[in-house]
């Protein structure tokens, strides 16, 4: 506290001496860096290195990993239809998030960001699903999709169709998961965009309006560019969230029917951890890690440089 107060009291002049590391500054580094560095090393860097190392073994978790099998785990992954399907599913989640969820969230945000009557209520209603735990949401939707007594049965009954079990349908079961993701997270992105929209200076929009810009032109040339940082951030969250998607899978489908609804993480869980194939799990985890890191750094470099 006192440090900040003195800094603001002395104003800009205090910045210069701070750049040059004083003895005091070094002391601070020596005292405060090791705990953080140690924690980071022990809980982040080491486990990652360890997982990469375990990936070269056939190991069931008991004793030390001793059966070195080189790149066999990775070779198996490449040729495994279920893993490839998981990759495709992750791709589908990303595609739907970007092409459907984000535009819808933005559109809804534009509608509820203003001072319209009832806007606050709508904001809350749209945000509600996000508050729910993923597993609870998954369980609820498992009932909704049930052709015998769920919401699905109400619809088929009304239309006079035979009961339809979406979660047991090999071709369409994954769309059920996509629906739940859309429902659960679009409210979160709506809130992000609402926050972004409220940060835009209204006088800019008013000025444009006086200059005769149409509503679309105002959106295209003022709102959208000013919302850019928020959109880039939302896309970043969305892709990373899609890559690590897991919680919905066990309560909704458990990866079935016929292993068609796994994501990379649920594949890791069902085909690695529950089968006590820890070497193999580590290999899957490492692949996931590489994909995430490549995306995270690549995306930040390319799109979020100025944010």
């Amino acid at each position: 506290m006192s440090v900040i107060e003195t800094a603001s009291a002395t104003g800009t002049t205090s910045v210069e001496p701070a750049r040059r590391m004083s003895a005091n500054g070094w002391a601070i580094v020596v005292i405060f860096l090791p705990p953080a560095l140690l924690l980071f090393t022990v809980f982040v860097a080491l486990p990652i290195a360890q997982a990469a190392w375990f990936g070269f073994f056939n190991w069931d978790g008991y004793g030390r990993p001793e059966r070195f099998i080189g790149l066999k785990n990775y070779g198996y992954l490449l040729n495994n239809a279920t893993f490839n399907r998981s990759l495709i599913n992750n791709g589908l989640v990303i595609a739907v998030s970007l092409l459907v969820q984000q535009p819808v969230a933005l559109a809804v945000a534009l509608m509820v960001a203003g001072r319209v009557a009832g806007a606050a209520w709508f904001r809350m209603i749209f945000f509600l699903p996000y508050v729910l735990a993923d597993v609870a949401a998954g369980l609820i939707w498992h009932f909704m999709f049930d052709g015998g007594y769920g919401l699905s049965s109400v619809v088929t009954d009304a239309l006079g169709l035979p009961p339809y079990y979406l979660l047991a349908d090999k071709t369409w079961a994954f769309s059920a998961i996509l629906i739940v993701i859309l429902w659960k997270y679009f409210g979160f992105y709506t809130m992000l965009y609402v926050a972004g929209l409220q940060g835009i200076d209204r006088s800019l929009l008013e000025a444009a309006e006086m200059d005769g810009a149409s509503a679309f032109q105002r959106f295209r040339h003022i709102t959208l560019p000013l919302l850019g940082p928020m959109i880039r951030l939302a896309i970043f969250f969305s892709v990373i969230g899609s890559l690590k998607l897991f919680d919905f899978i066990p309560p909704l489908t458990g990866g079935g029917p016929f292993e068609t609804t796994n994501t990379m993480v649920s594949y890791l869980y069902y085909f690695g951890i529950t089968r006590m194939r820890f070497g193999f799990s580590s290999a899957v985890g490492f692949v996931l890690f590489v994909i995430c890191v490549t995306f995270a750094f690549g995306y930040r470099r390319l799109f979020m440089r100025d944010d």
């Binding site: 498992h142 999709f145 049930d146 052709g147 015998g148 009961p163 079990y165 979660l167 047991a168 090999k170 079961a173 489908t253 079935g256 029917p257 016929f258």
Partner: peptide
């Protein structure tokens, strides 16, 4: 089996 047995818990 009952309808939808592939997703029945």
């Amino acid at each position: 089996f009952q309808p939808g047995y592939l997703s029945t818990k």
